[in-house]
């Protein structure tokens, strides 16, 4: 099984372009939390559930330093204000 996995990885490496460059993704931080919170504040629909609950939880996570999780919640809140059905996941 391990041998096969190694073969598969080798096959994939061969199939991939030889020069796969590395690109850095910027980390999510307080700036994103602030920017998303401001975006929600400008939107009247953000005062209604489920956007309100998601936004509150996102802000709390950001305050606690969990920026990645906090940004994800805030983004779900933004999506909810736009009529998205993304309310199932807390």
């Amino acid at each position: 099984m391990d041998l096969l996995r190694r073969d598969v990885v080798l096959l994939l490496l061969l199939a991939m372009p030889a020069s796969a460059q590395e690109v850095r993704v910027l980390p999510l931080g307080e700036a994103e939390c602030v920017e998303l919170s401001a975006r929600l504040a400008r939107n009247a629909r953000a005062w209604r559930d489920p956007a309100r609950g998601l936004a509150a939880e996102g802000r709390r996570l950001c305050r606690d330093g969990y920026f990645r999780a906090g940004v994800a919640k805030l983004r779900r809140a933004v999506r909810a204000t736009q009529g998205g059905a993304d309310t199932a996941r807390p």
Partner: peptide
């Protein structure tokens, strides 16, 4: 949300890249 773009690689606009996340 990207720090940089990949280097120009010929005329192709498409790039398969490895993404590095700090966290």
């Amino acid at each position: 949300n990207l720090a940089e773009l990949p280097r120009r690689d010929g005329n192709s606009a498409w790039h398969s890249v490895t993404l590095s996340h700090e966290d």
